[in-house]
Design a protein around this nucleic acid. Structure first.
Lengths: 224, 224, 224, 224
DNA sequence: GATGAATGAGAATTCATTCAT
DNA sequence: TATGAATGAATTCTCATTCAT
């Protein structure tokens, strides 16, 4: 029909990439807005500005799309600690908690949604668990190190401790941000929460008093 | 007008009660077996051995039925501590954790399911939060007492500590039992877990060292 | 179980009669309130203060109940003319119209409902047609008499005239009262309407001027 | 960005239009065949040769579809009088009646059905009333003109007369054709009926005598 | 690749009718 | 007779998925 130079092969694939990207972005918006179950393929396509049929060009199902969306989330929760944190385990714990809490807060709705969807989507579950395992592994390594150096007691296995403490922080975020009623957010002092999590965590490992010193304690303790 | 034996108004309503009960029981079975979303009204009715119509005689929706099922769960998680526990806070914490973990484990699948359903059912959410609040309130009272007696530092608010520590135990149970793949349960020493939770909790409140020694772990491992 | 004098056979049938009567009365109330189609057997039973099961003791279906209700309505629309009306055909027409309009108005909702139900219930239709036929027959007889006496032209068959004129009055009532929005009744001067119907009817039969005389016309005519 | 032949946005929407049209046509057939209440969405879809889902692409409910069907009916009942009728009011009345009766007869079943559905569907009722109002308004204008010219008495308001006379014709059609048992149509001389309606109407307005004579009846009987 | 109308399997829900008490 | 819980056939409606254009 149309005579002209043959289209460059990557022109098409670039268009494809764009359409695909629009769908992923739209999915996150729609999922956050109406929840995963209430999100209709039509809604996502409309939000992306493409036809429903195009959805099936790139994805097999809503689940696959959620996996795609979820894939990008986990790294953000456990970025490598900044170089300037120093070797003090207390400071490292605080930095880790701060990063986790802040990143969770930013993506709270979609994270909670992914977590819930985990129950009925084994593939997503595997993805989720892998992300979680990375977090726990880092904590576990850290505890193992502390145990070796004698800084923390050995009466609880590093594996179990890591699971429990990482879970503690995660659960706090999930409650505080993930289940938050978006229309009526609760007052919450995020820094106070990070401090509290860190204090409880370090004490649970019997790190606070001997290692951090009285000055660190003074800083966060309210009543002497 | 007519004198005779007192009418038994519950004669029929007893039958009704039975049918209703059958439905609630069936619902739990079906929810646990196929998940809430995959559960069809027909499945529940069939499992209960009644007609679909009977479902609607007693419930407006699957959601209402789940609320009914959920209603009975929460008390079990936080029974009053047994009288013989004694005043030692460490022992009380251990007893509380043990009760929570065991009760959670027994009802794991349905508890996780309820928690997930919480995201899309505000009424259920309220119910759930109320149950949770009772747990946290008890912990909070306990911490407040310990702070007053000087047994634990005052640098974290009782409210926040209670939230975090209760959440810690809850999250552990949710991961360990609620998300468990029923067909391939993971090996887990429950008593070791209870001991670990208790140790971390008590240390976080700086209760552990003076009161229990190295033998604490021994004490909680294995059933006496 | 109960020893006593045997119940009188008509005691039972009297109770039966009462129950039946309660159902018929309740049916009319419910039909008028929510319409025939929206009326549920349960509604009627509840309104009557009896159990659903009792409905089926006396009626086979809602349709049968409506027939029962309808049965009593038609006589009221065409009562025998009062003795003191006199032989003047104009006065007799006026009396007939007045009776019809007033009776219709009193039972408007249920009459309209019955008429509509006629379309899908042949048995009711037969009943309805019989009632209607009685009205038309009376009109037809009257016209036949007038034609014989030369008072009215013979160019339209009495049958057809009767049908058309009776229909005219009926349709007016149906529109004015039967379809009336109960919550916002329209202002309508009923006497003016009766007069108008009578004038048009008598003129259609060429009765008004020569027979009734100027004084009758004066009475009903507004603008000279 | 791309220059090419103008897109045909109606290419697909033309298919849509066809499907929609098929549904409307099928609806009329099915409604006429089994009545509105007995008509199932599946029946209509099957009759139209489309899937049930397609019904919901275009209509929200059976009611909406009936409204659509009804929408087209009313104009036909009151077409503008043909130009060659002339100014004689009697001839104009006859032409109006003839048009109404014939159009009603052609659409009798669906018209009666719509009228009945009017009782439970306020939106349809409004539509129906609007159609009816147009008919009455024309009659009213005509009567007002006749009153002004002194051709007809002023003792009944034009509004009321128009309502009553229009209703008379309508009711006759409704009885004669709308309620007709399709399987056993009654013998009825339509032209005789039109003549009768016209005679009674014109006499009611005192128009008949001076203008038409005894031959009037002859004139309208049979098709010239 | 993109489009969006068409499809129809699947689930919820209602309510007349039955029947054990 | 009276009761009202139980029944399940029948219908509506939704929405993921396909496919002709």
């Amino acid at each position: 029909m149309m005579v002209g130079p043959p289209e460059k092969p990557d022109l098409l694939s670039r268009r494809a990439e764009r359409t695909r990207g629009k769908l992923v972005a739209a999915a996150r918006t729609v999922f956050e807005g109406r929840g995963f179950l209430e999100a209709r393929i039509v809604d996502i396509a409309k939000e992306a500005g493409v036809a429903v049929g195009s959805f099936y060009t790139y994805f097999e199902s809503k689940e696959e799309l959620l996996r795609e969306v979820a894939g990008t989330l986990f790294q953000e929760l456990i970025p490598p600690l900044p170089a300037d944190v120093g070797p003090d385990p207390r400071a490292r714990i605080e930095a880790g908690n701060r990063a986790y809490v802040r990143a969770y807060r930013k993506n709270a709705r979609i994270l909670a949604l992914v977590q819930h969807q985990t129950l009925s989507d084994p593939t997503l579950r595997a993805l989720y668990d892998a992300g979680r395992a990375a977090f726990i592994a880092r904590v576990e390594r850290s505890i193992r190190r502390l145990q070796r150096s004698g800084a923390t007691p050995k009466d609880v296995s590093p594996r179990l401790s890591a699971n429990i403490l990482a879970g503690m922080v995660h659960e706090f975020c999930y409650r505080a941000f993930g289940l938050e009623d978006a229309s009526a957010p609760r007052e919450l002092d995020v820094d106070e929460a990070i401090a509290a999590l860190t204090i409880l965590w370090t004490r649970a490992l019997v790190l606070s008093e001997p290692i951090v010193g009285a000055n660190a304690a003074k800083k966060t303790r309210g009543n002497p």
